[in-house]
């Protein structure tokens, strides 16, 4: 059964990576990053389940990770809102040079 969760984490990871790379919309990119994080967390929790006896440390790591993700998502959304108000667009222009 744990193999199922490991495969699931891999699939979600791949989907999130694909969206992060190909979607131009910043809100979608932010959501993809969040889903990517969730896949990593799922992987960690599955590791905890596989250990004998149950290993509490990955849970502590995931809890810390969730707190960090909440903060990063908040910063990302605040930045997004500010960018949208300022420029009226939700995509990144490629400005490599000046």
């Amino acid at each position: 059964m744990t193999a199922f969760y490991l495969i699931l984490a891999g699939v979600i990871l791949a989907m999130a990576f694909h969206a992060l790379m190909t979607r131009p919309n910043l809100l979608r990119k932010l959501m993809a990053l969040n889903i990517f994080t969730s896949a990593v967390f799922l992987f960690l929790v599955t590791l905890a389940r596989m250990a004998e006896p149950l290993d509490p440390i990955p849970h502590a790591m995931v809890l810390t990770g969730i707190v960090v993700t909440v903060s990063t998502t908040a910063v990302g959304l605040a930045l997004l809102v500010r960018l949208y108000r300022r420029s009226g667009s939700l995509t990144l222009q490629s400005t490599d040079d000046d």
Binding site: L13, L20, L26, F36, V40, G76, L79, S87, Q93, T95
Partner: peptide, 23 residues
């Protein structure tokens, strides 16, 4: 703001790769 947003996405993606490796 655009530069900050790009840095945000890229650096957080980097953190996630790092965390995956740690896991």
């Amino acid at each position: 703001l655009q530069a900050a947003m790009r840095y945000f996405l890229v650096t957080l993606f980097g953190s996630m790769l790092y965390l995956m490796g740690v896991a």
